[in-house]
Every structure is written in structure tokens, then in C-alpha cells.
Design a protein around this nucleic acid. Structure first.
Lengths: 112, 112
DNA sequence: AGAGAATATACCTGTCAAGGAATATTCCGC
DNA sequence: GCGGAATATTCCTTGACAGGTATATTCTCT
């Protein structure tokens, strides 16, 4: 999760992911489309690969990179936990605010 | 989206978010629970706030931070685009691989 | 085996962001 | 207005990381 997020945090890497969403691509193709130099693309793909976001399929001297589903599913599951509690949170906020105010007054022995 | 991801990419910030998922908290509380120093917590909250991930509610000298739903919804929408294409991608991968191989052979005038 | 294409790695450099410590700011009660 | 609590901001230093360039690696074809 942490790895996934930091891998996606880099702008060029996010663009690579967006590119690969449409279809698997070779390194050179990615470099051309994003106007990046080949070495940097390879490096970014290394990071993405280590994070499990992409996988490689060699074809001759080319390496075709494609997305892997798992990390996206994990991200989805993580998000799910937030979706469930969004409503509660807003209700809760008022409670918390009141609670904090009450505590503050109590701490000072303010009886009215 | 980019901002959201890079804000979440920092480990301590992600932890702050996880904490706030349970309930809104004051800066000091966060610092204690995560064993961080107050200034760093304030700085992280600044980043999260700029990214629109959290909002502040002042209570006396305290500032109660709570999550905002919007960025999570955006993340969700972004993910949705990937969920839809996961299946296609795998089918497509084979096509691409064949396609690339065929192209390679064609480029060399290899007729059989 | 040798040439050349496609990709990966190594090394260097500069930048940016996070932590530490001190200080400024804001707010409350008296 | 003053003292003290809670938080924000500033300045400094350091480490990680991305880009640039050169070079190594891998594969194919002849």
C-alpha cells in the first residue's frame, strides 16, 4: 500500500501507468509518447515493477510492460474502508467539537 | 489527483490519515499517538490541508483536524477507470505480444 | 562471431522535502 | 494586558531521488 502510493506519487510514473491502462507497451514506445529519455523510463519501470504495479514480457530485444491488477485491487479495498465511514465522520465531527469544548470548560472548573 | 497521491505517499502522513479515519483529532493528540514532534505534525497537516484531504475546526487554542470526503471520491473515480479495463487488458496482452512478434518478422522481410 | 537494435545499469549532480530546534502566533482565563 | 497552553512558522542541515550521460547487457539477424 505504502509502496504502491509512493510509486504512483511521481508524475512521470503516473503517466506511464495511465499509458499502460490503454494497452501494454514496449519501453521505447513509452519513451516516445511521454517525451522521456529511455534510461529514465527504464528506471521508472523498475520502481513500478518493484511495487508490483507492472509486469514484463520479453519479445525479442523488446520488453513489453503491462499493468498488474493486484495493487489496484488493494487500493480499492483500502479506499473501501473510507467510503464506509464518510457519513459517520460528519456526524462525529459535531460530537467531537462539543466534546472538546466541554472538556475545556470542565478543566477550568467553570461551573456555569 | 497528483497532489492527493503525493500527499499520501509520505508514511507519517498516511498514518495521520488512518488516525483521522477513526475520529477527528487535535494536533497534540496526533503527535502523541504517532510519537511525532508537534512541529512535524503541523507541517504534515499543512500538506494534507493544501491537498484538500483534511479540514480544520478551531476550538479554543486547539485545532481539530478531520478528513474531507472529496479527494477520496476522486481517487475512487480514478480507480474505477482501471477496474473496468482489468479484464480487457489480459486478453489484450496476448494480442499485443503476437502483434509485436509479427511486426518483428515483417520488418525483416521474413516470409516464412 | 559481429553489427546493430532495444533495454538496463552505473555514476554523477542538483534539487527538494523531511526532521530538528528555536521562535512566532493565537487564544484563553484571570 | 499578562502568563501559559496549543499550534504554526522559520531556518538549518541532511538524505533520497530524479534527471543526464555514458556504458553494459541482451537478443536477433546475417
Amino acid at each position: 500500500m505504502q509502496n504502491t502510493l509512493s510509486a504512483l506519487a511521481e508524475p512521470n510514473r503516473l503517466q506511464i501507468i495511465e499509458l499502460l491502462r490503454r494497452r501494454p507497451l514496449a519501453v521505447g514506445e513509452i519513451a516516445v509518447r511521454l517525451r522521456l529519455r529511455q534510461p529514465q523510463v527504464s528506471k521508472h519501470l523498475r520502481v513500478l515493477s518493484d511495487a508490483g504495479l507492472v509486469e514484463v514480457h520479453p519479445v525479442a530485444q523488446q520488453r513489453i510492460y503491462s499493468l498488474r491488477a493486484e495493487p489496484f485491487n488493494e487500493l480499492d479495498a483500502w479506499l473501501e474502508r473510507y467510503r464506509r465511514t464518510v457519513d459517520e465522520r460528519f456526524d462525529r465531527l459535531d460530537d467531537i467539537l462539543r466534546e472538546q469544548k466541554a472538556k475545556g470548560e470542565k478543566d477550568h472548573g467553570h461551573s456555569k
